[in-house]
Nucleic acid binder design. Structure first.
Lengths: 350, 350
DNA sequence: CTGAAAGCGCTTACAG
DNA sequence: CTGAAAGCGCTTACAG
């Protein structure tokens, strides 16, 4: 019963021709039945289905795509920053749900902010002749995708807009969300608010920084470059930087962290110093267990499920033939007060 | 410059034939160059490369697979419980790293413990003619995969063993890890240790339960079914159940939670009652920020990176022709003491 | 070292 | 409603 070697080589696989022979019909009739064309005699349909089941026949998508008018491979690409990061993973799952409902498979890939890897993976998608791609690019120039677009492959950008390319995009409102978060801290009396940001090359990192600047400007607070740290890539880097800031002569009374991992780094730095009840913190992007920390962490939450679902909707609309002008969809952020962002600034002394 | 409509239909795509015409060589010579066959005149290689670049030629994997002897699609399937769950996502990423180094793309899918969805997705992998599949099955009978195996498609199981099928597998040592964790609690004087477990149909959930039983038996502690809760699917369910147990006349003094989300549910229930300094807790599977909770959560950590990497290694060995007997690889767990598991039982009264 | 012919598994375009 | 022939883009098998 368990006699097949697990690595057994070239077994045979039934083809339409085999099914046709067993059902004693032509190849074309099998093709019609497999593709649910309605114009087949019910008796033949039955015979073909039985033969297909008996031979465990599975159609070959690659072969059918090769000859088909539309060339559809029933595959899309979903290329994100890092599928092991909850933000990317949630977008991926949301897209997967839409795709599976249409019988479409998903080729996933992670860039890790490496433009070279982006080129490798998009070229790979091209060779697989995917029907469309959802992408959160690592590179800053997307002209190279024009060729694919012109070959009929739609692209939907998520989290970061296309540059030098016309394509659909779904974004969070990073700037408005950040500005609101920083204004929230200012309203609690903070004037020395540190900023922790990811790579300046990342669109959202820049937007969140701009939101921070806008809030300070609206409140008439001068920007202090000594409490602004950008190009932080990891939780550890954020922790170290936040620690240095806290140990300085005139430390910030609050932090605004422009990303998940950076927020967690800030939490660690503040805790290490036992300052978690005195130093305020708001993070951009929600994370698991933020509500179980003490104090719980106030955040600007994004909605990755909505982002993924919307991007999938747009992509399949294009695949279905929509040739209208490119769309831009903004998904609102939600401010969630949990405690860390509601810590007031110490009374001011003059 | 940005004049292409984003949804532009059937553009043309260069084929080998086009490249051959432009380079003034035969189709076959282009094929040789694209496949890096060494027996081509360097001058022709150069001409072909230039023509290919000029036409933005990308080979068609599907077409080449169709005719190739080995029929390789340069695609593998990675089908896990839920790619949005960090455990699955980390395995996926580890596999992706190995695959990308070989120029292989990854079709990802999530089952959500739905055997029907497992059948849908494996059939889809079959139609895409993937070169191999890594799978954490939701179903309990995997005989239906025999056909694919016999057609030459290797399967590597992760997290859960194949049933009624002979295939490679990579597992955590759930039973030993669980038994150790419960013994750890017993050593702190606990005798009323509640068990929270996932669906009994899940292999690992059963193994972790068996580990719990073994530890109790070794210590001569009678099993009390009133403090054993299985078939819990969500964090909320675990929270509710743990709450009921804590509110009972003779509550448990410790919890062992057999999975990530259940551990978090237990944390919430214990906290709601302000008992986090009195009730001990050990969870199976580590999670982000477990070390930042108060008390920090003691866990039996798995190593999803090692699991994914090992599974990928096994799969590519099979794809490369290894036909040896099926392998079973056990990845050790690591016990991490952080505080919640080191809370002693209240002094016993008789 | 190079190329013309056949064929992979399927769908198209056409004829009956 | 059914089928025989041609062809999708490529590699194989063979000849030169």
């Amino acid at each position: 019963m368990l006699d097949a070697a697990p690595g057994r080589g070239q077994g045979s696989r039934a083809t339409m021709k085999d099914v046709a022979a067993l059902a004693r019909v032509s190849l074309k009739t099998v093709s019609r039945v497999i593709n649910d064309e309605p114009t087949v005699n019910p008796e033949l349909v039955e015979r073909v289905r039985r033969a297909a089941a008996q031979l465990h026949y599975q159609p070959n998508f690659g072969a059918s795509a090769l000859r088909r008018r539309d060339g559809r491979s029933s595959t899309i690409g979903v290329l994100l920053e890092d599928l092991a990061n909850p933000f990317s993973a949630t977008i991926y799952r949301a897209v997967e749900e839409v795709a599976i409902a249409r019988g479409v498979s998903v080729l996933g890939g992670s860039f890790d902010e490496d433009p070279q890897r982006e080129h490798t993976l998009t070229a790979s998608m091209s060779r697989h002749r995917v029907d469309g791609v959802i992408i959160a690019p690592a590179s800053r120039d997307h002209q190279y995708l024009r060729q694919e677009q012109m070959a009929g492959v739609p692209f939907v950008f998520v989290d970061r807009p296309p540059r030098l390319l016309d394509a659909d995009v779904v974004l969070s409102d990073s700037r408005a969300g950040s500005s609101l978060a920083v204004a929230h801290l200012i309203a609690r009396g903070h004037r020395r608010i540190a900023f922790l940001g990811d790579l300046t090359t990342i669109y959202t990192a820049e937007e969140r920084y701009q939101g921070y600047l806008v809030a300070l400007e609206n409140a008439g607070i001068e920007v202090d470059p000594t409490i602004i740290a950008r190009d932080l890539r990891t939780s550890d880097a954020a922790q170290e930087t936040a620690g240095h800031l806290l140990d300085a002569a005139t430390p910030p009374t609050a932090f605004f962290a422009g990303q998940n991992l950076l927020t967690i780094g800030a939490v660690r730095a503040i805790r290490e110093r036992g300052r978690q009840r005195n130093v305020a913190l708001v993070g951009f992007d929600d994370f698991d267990l933020a509500d179980l920390l003490e104090p719980a962490v106030t955040v600007v939450a994004q909605d990755p499920v909505a982002i993924g679902r919307e991007a999938a909707r747009m992509l399949f609309a294009r695949i279905d033939g929509d040739e209208g002008p490119s769309q831009k969809k903004i998904v609102e952020t939600t401010f969630i007060s949990r405690g860390s962002g509601e810590i007031a600034a110490p009374a001011e002394r003059d």
